[in-house]
């Protein structure tokens, strides 16, 4: 039975981290209807900034973590201001192409540093012995990762539902011209959306980096790995990202635990989430929590 519960716990842990990594994509999409293909690079940048501040500068890791979120907040805001603001009102595909180009530029910049090609790991700052209850084990890194994920996701949900700025962002997402007509600054909202996405990406980068080690290719690939989570959740729903993330994590772990190695199956942990995604989208084309828009013409 502990095998089953270990898989459940692992699935929830992995799913939560997916949700956090997907959050940045949701935030940008929610406000600007743009899929940000440079998200993975921002995840990696956040992790490397934390490492640099901790190991090279010598700042305690907790403060490095906060500083890295702050830096990526302003970094993403600047990126939006320099590259994307002038594209407001342009076709979405143009903006998406710019994010792809942006990803290549950030790739290139990171490759200019040792972080682009070398492997690092964060200094150990949490207890090394895992928490084990009834044969089910979870590492402190994973536990802290899950707690941070839920704190950030809870915070962002509140922000979008209750704060004036959050409601403005939702309004811009619904109708840019309508929002402008009631005095909302669309450029500011876009900037803020990118900034918050940058912040959450840094948090995700640090958590993933703590689990896998700091390898640029591994880290930035998570920008793509979590796309199914965003699509399943409904693209613009924070709750959707959480639920979809956990569903994906659980499917992955259960497939790996019960299907792989039996009946000649292998690698189902990677494939099953996509199969389930396709099946769900057949019945719910807008994802689990996506908005079904009806346009009257």
């Amino acid at each position: 039975m502990s095998y089953f519960f270990q898989i459940v716990v692992s699935g929830i842990v992995v799913g939560s981290i997916y949700a956090l990594a997907a959050l940045g994509l949701v935030l940008v999409y929610k406000s600007s209807r743009v899929a940000n293909f440079a998200h993975g690079q921002i995840i990696a940048a956040g992790a490397f900034i934390t490492y640099f501040l901790t190991v090279t500068v010598g700042i305690p890791i907790f403060f490095s973590f906060l500083a890295s979120m702050l830096i990526t907040f302003f970094l993403a805001m600047s990126v939006e201001k320099i590259f994307l603001r002038r594209l407001i009102g342009e076709p979405i595909i143009s903006v998406i192409m710019v994010t792809i180009g942006l990803g290549s530029i950030i790739d290139g910049l990171i490759y200019l540093t040792p972080f682009g090609t070398e492997n690092y790991s964060f200094p150990a700052f949490l207890p090394q012995n895992p928490l084990t209850v009834g044969g089910v084990s979870i590492s402190w890194t994973q536990l802290v990762g899950v707690i941070i994920t839920f704190l950030l996701i809870g915070g962002f949900s509140w922000f979008f539902k209750k704060s004036t700025v959050g409601i403005s962002m939702r309004a811009v997402s619904d109708d840019q011209f309508g929002a402008m007509s009631v005095g909302i600054s669309v450029p500011k909202v876009f900037g803020l959306a990118w900034a918050t996405a940058g912040l959450s990406a840094a948090a995700a980068g640090c958590i993933i980096g703590n689990i896998t080690g700091l390898n640029f290719d591994t880290l930035h690939s998570f920008g793509i790995v979590v796309f199914p989570v965003v699509i399943l959740g409904g693209l613009d729903s924070i709750l959707g990202a959480v639920v979809a993330g956990i569903i994906m994590g659980l499917i992955q772990q259960f497939a790996s635990g019960y299907l792989d190695g039996n009946w000649g199956l292998n690698g189902t942990g990677d494939v099953m989430p996509y199969i389930v995604l396709v099946i769900i989208l057949l019945f719910k084309p807008h994802g689990l929590f996506g908005i079904h828009e009806i346009e009257r013409v």
Binding site: Q6, I7, V9, S10, V13, V14, I17, S137, Q142, I208, I211, T212, T218, S221, F222, V225, Q253, F254, S256, G257, D260, G269, D270
Partner: peptide, 8 residues
Amino acid sequence: KDLDNSAM
């Protein structure tokens, strides 16, 4: 790209 290999 596994974040947790516990099941395996």
